[in-house]
């Protein structure tokens, strides 16, 4: 892939806070026009990485470009073309909806500010509530407003930090539809989140834990790269079987999923044997299944403290 087609191209990004390494030699290539999911557990360094990409934090090591601009030296140019939506609502709660948008418009020095603000309000369906204080909006509306504010200056790259946290499923679906429309229009979107259920909605994924990139690629590539086999077990006496499996060889993890448990491991033969032993009592049924992203990610996270080379199996 030629470099110009990459919206984000970074290598070896490292960030330390005091002595703690928060992001460790992080590399990522995101092609233009994609929705790229950025997954990882809480405190894994997602927000720190995003902040480094848009110039809010200075990396302690590494280099790269964002929209073709150097992230170390040209953060001013990056800021003009990037829309960054923070994890926490960061517009002014004591300004009205329209005032917030106006403010963003002024800060970016837009010539046709009024038209853009009106258009954004129209798209949000908030023309009638333009005078309402932003602080009085519900979580879902705040998120929509924040997104509209990020999009006001027509960014080429959208960085969204956990945009759907605390938003109901209906609004979330709408939100994703909107993102896909934008990506279709050529915008690149990097979305961080820790809900796995949304991972499939992205074109490609990157998984980060403890500051290290553990896997990246499409959902299928990530799953295939983990080389994991998984069994689903259901029936009577699940708790006992789960306890037995936790100690059994080959079963690297046992995760309850409602009325079922998922047992996964990288050693397929040992796992099959252990599962057969554990499901010997009547009433239990084991079926081999395709491992889900969640299984893969939990597996990756558990093996993360191991050397990066061992965990980083997925094609980049």
């Amino acid at each position: 892939m030629e470099p110009a087609a990459l919206a984000i191209d970074v290598e070896g990004l490292t960030k330390r806070f005091d002595d703690k390494v928060v992001v460790d030699r992080f590399g990522l290539q995101v092609p233009r026009g994609q929705i790229y999911g950025f997954l990882g557990p809480n405190g894994s360094g997602k927000t720190t990485t995003i902040r480094m990409l848009c110039g809010l934090l200075t990396p302690d090591g590494g280099s790269g470009t964002c929209l073709g601009f150097d992230i170390l030296r040209e953060s001013a140019s990056i800021k003009r073309q990037v829309g960054y939506m923070t994890q926490r609502f960061s517009l002014y709660e004591d300004l009205s909806i329209a005032e917030n948008l106006e403010f963003v418009g002024r800060v970016y020095g837009m010539a046709d500010r009024r038209r853009r603000v009106d258009a954004a309000l129209g798209q949000l369906g908030l023309e009638k509530r333009r005078g309402q204080l932003a602080g009085t909006l519900s979580g879902g509306w705040k998120q929509r407003l924040a997104l509209a504010a990020c999009l006001l200056h027509d960014p080429k790259l959208l960085l969204l930090d956990e945009p759907t946290a605390g938003v109901d499923p209906g609004a979330r679906r709408e939100f994703w539809e909107h993102l896909h429309e934008l990506a279709h229009g050529g915008m690149t979107v990097l979305v961080s989140k820790h809900y796995m259920d949304e991972a499939e909605r992205c074109h490609a994924l990157a998984y980060i834990a403890y500051g290290k990139l553990l896997a990246s690629g499409t959902a299928q590539e990530v799953v295939a790269g983990a080389n994991l086999s998984t069994w689903a077990i259901e029936g009577e006496g699940l708790a006992a079987a789960a306890a037995q499996l936790r100690a059994a060889p080959g079963a690297d993890m046992v995760v309850p999923f409602g009325a079922r448990i998922h047992v996964s491991g990288t050693d397929a033969a040992a796992l099959a044997a252990s599962v057969a032993r554990a499901t010997a009592p009547p009433g239990l049924k084991a079926t081999p299944i395709e491992p889900g992203l969640e299984d893969v990610f939990i597996h990756l996270m558990r093996s993360a403290p191991e050397p990066v080379s061992a965990a980083r199996q997925a094609p980049g």
Binding site: T86, R88, F89, E93
Partner: peptide
């Protein structure tokens, strides 16, 4: 404290 600083810093001001 309100977190609006982050937004302000992300703009080109």
């Amino acid at each position: 404290e309100r977190g609006t600083m982050e937004n302000l810093l992300a703009t080109p001001v």
